[in-house]
């Protein structure tokens, strides 16, 4: 199961990297979003899985899923949302003021 998750994460990282390298601001932002998903999967896989148990005491005997990665990811999800919102608004304002979402055009705008 871990191996499969890691491979899924790897594919997402590849895809995210390609998106981030593109010219379009929105694609860059989407790329960071995909990258976050990949990292979440990576943290999950690094923690290891222990079968059909949840990290809640009192359910099904004495073994529990590793709770630490889950707590880390929970934090990450919320922060990711905040940062994504910030990026989005940034892109939105950039487009409002400069009338383009093409990064190489933005660069030229800055130089003129």
């Amino acid at each position: 199961m871990e191996t499969l998750i890691i491979i899924v994460a790897g594919v997402l990282v590849t895809s995210a990297t390609y998106l981030i390298l593109s010219q379009n601001l929105i694609r860059v932002i989407l790329g960071t979003g995909v990258l976050t998903h990949a990292v979440h999967l990576l943290i999950m896989a690094m923690g290891g899985f222990s079968g059909n148990v949840v990290p809640i005491i009192g359910e099904k005997g004495n073994t529990y899923a590793d709770a630490l990665p889950q707590a880390l990811i929970l934090t990450s999800i919320v922060i990711n949302f905040a940062v994504a919102a910030f990026f989005l608004v940034l892109a939105y304002q950039v487009y409002n003021r400069m009338n383009t979402d093409d990064l190489s055009k933005l660069r030229r705008y800055y130089h003129e």
Partner: peptide, 25 residues
């Protein structure tokens, strides 16, 4: 992007296969 993805996967797989520490969980 492919090289980043491959390096990422390979490192993750290596870590998974050779655990060095006990879990603190």
């Amino acid at each position: 992007s492919v090289s980043v993805g491959v390096v990422f996967t390979v490192i993750a797989l290596s870590i998974k296969s050779g655990r060095l520490f006990e879990s603190v969980a």
